[in-house]
Design a binder for these strands. Structure first.
Lengths: 203, 203, 203, 203
DNA sequence: TATGAATGAGCCTTCATTCAT
DNA sequence: CATGAATGAAGGCTCATTCAT
């Protein structure tokens, strides 16, 4: 994904990775604030201290930064979700842990989430975004399978499981638009409150 | 907002309004599909049959189209919401009617909603978008006041009303991303299922 | 090929075609002098009086200009060659007429020829240049068929017809590098001298 | 011409020369295939295994490589031509030997020749290319003087010696575009066939 | 000696908008 | 009213070259 092959010598490689990371983070922040299209390479240059040309040592294109942002968002989230879902806790526990991890991840990746949402029309439409699309779907699939398990063992019951899942996705995905780290409620508390709400009908 | 004063003779005025409407709708559709920035006046020209120059007879700028899209989305919604909230039905009824009207409106304005969501970073940031911002807040305020009324008269109870409202906003605002008119569930059914879910904890 | 559809109203269309022609000619001249890559759109802008942006009303890309130059070179040449070859003159006459027409065309399209030669590595390599490549081959094929006819009716004889054709192609294609219109020898005289030379062995 | 002074110790010097040679040859090949401007230092780096920075140990600039390619082409050719022309063979023999040597040299320097042809507009125009230009002219001068000698001693006669020379230059300079080493005809055979053709009118 | 980071100028192209006709 | 020509600013990206390490 970078323009040139990253260095192989460990010391240089470390510095390289660090700077690429800083670039991606700066991009996430600016893209979230101004929008992807409204952020120019010049803006990125100003924000990072790299020259416009120099940026291309750390990324092959502006769009590559977008992909990197999505990957940074989705890869660890998916990994955690898989880890949680593979334990032998109850579906109810699974769900609560998933939502907690999810909101915690969002809380620490707010710009990433905003960028991800903002770019939906590209991600969902362009063939070259299939990999990202797949990750999103895999995560949602894990959530759904937990709901299925809950229905199966009788611990949950939904009028319409599909609609319930969409409700859950909606409420959590909306969080980055108002959630402030260090706010009145921690991500975990929010997760708990929402899980209570979401599971309330099951008694 | 149009570039030149719209015609005043009724016949001409009707044709004018019709064309402006067609332009706004085409813009909503294209903006939703490709994104606002990725849609050029040329694309609009192709989609409407108007020439690039001709478009400026019906709008003063590309951004004006964006505002018009938001207004078309928010004005009737707000009007309906006010009408509903001003009846003397119960908070519970108010909420159910509001969500139903809201989802119906979304169903018939999916592109508008997608554009609205996609442009969040502009709407929430730029001073010149204050009017739109205010409408969004007014609508949310109506919803909140219904929840307050529900709490007051004891028909609803929330662990955290703020979080509950945000959950509601999230789930409904997410709908345009998956809702298909003519799908398995009507907007009204969805509204009912969700209201059941949302109000489940209150019994 | 132009960026936008050319106008359809006759008067405008005439002006449009005229300006596109002027642009192509200017491009041929500059490309021949400095090389295609070394000529910037800015140079073209300066040479034509159009702004850099305005150039794109008359062409869709810099490469489109290159294609147009090649077409302007090859299309009429091929047409003339076909006309000549389809008469029932003798092979010897055919050849003399062909070489004459060819050199006359070169004389009036020297920049085009220089550009064509200079861009060989692109034309012969890139798939998207196949159409141009085909025209070149069609012309050479006509020449060869005349030589074949000459051999068949005994009016010509070659040690190696393939090598003879390549010699002919070489000498004529080299002409644009030294030929000056209005020079000591007219294109027709040169054609005659060379045909004498080329056919000398046949007596 | 190299960037830094080449090493003086013999062993190092040998390695240095070898690498510079490999660089020039790689450059000739790539420039011929893709064009000089379309070949980047990065491409050269990839083709040679040198790093981008490392290339500048063996050349002072990209243009220096171009000059080196031309020199490698012209210097030995000119040397051979002078050697041949200074023997006391007949003009006819001189010519045949020259064309043979010339085509043999082309056959072993096809990329060089293609690059040379492709860069004509630079070589013939820029003052700093005068040295190369002079070598080309010197070679052509030798050819012409042989034709003059042939006319003088009556062994050759031309309708127009200038045009005859230009024909010869054209046909031979065109060879790199179709000649394949190891093809049906050896360079020497081609030289003989063409000399026959070229001298046919003289009997 | 060699590497990879960095530069900075330049290039092609797009596009919202204006305006004469 | 409507058209198409024209503008000019900006944008993403490439690349030959330099230089500290």
């Amino acid at each position: 994904m970078p323009a040139t092959n990253p260095p192989t010598r460990p010391a240089l490689r470390a510095r390289y990775d660090e700077r690429r990371q800083a670039l991606i983070d700066a991009a996430a922040k600016l893209f979230a604030e101004r929008g992807y299209e409204q952020t120019s390479i010049g803006d990125l240059s100003e924000a990072t201290g790299l020259t416009a040309g120099g940026i291309y040592h750390y990324t092959s294109s502006k769009e590559d930064l977008l992909i990197a942002i999505c990957d940074e968002l989705l890869d660890p989230l998916l990994e955690q979700a898989r880890a949680i879902a593979s334990t032998d806790a109850s579906p109810d526990d699974h769900l609560r842990q998933l939502v907690r991890a999810w909101l915690l991840h969002i809380e620490s990746h707010i710009p990433h989430m905003l960028v991800f949402a903002q770019t939906r029309h590209t991600i969902e439409r362009e063939p070259r975004w299939r990999a990202v699309r797949r990750k999103r779907k895999a995560f949602e699939q894990i959530l759904d399978s937990v709901l299925v398990a809950g229905e199966t063992d009788g611990s949950m019951s939904f009028e319409d499981r599909g609609l319930a899942l969409l409700a859950l996705l909606g409420m959590v995905n909306y969080a980055p638009q108002w959630l402030k780290p260090g706010g009145r409620r921690s991500a975990e508390e929010i997760a708990d409150v929402w899980c209570d709400l979401f599971l309330a009908g099951d008694e």
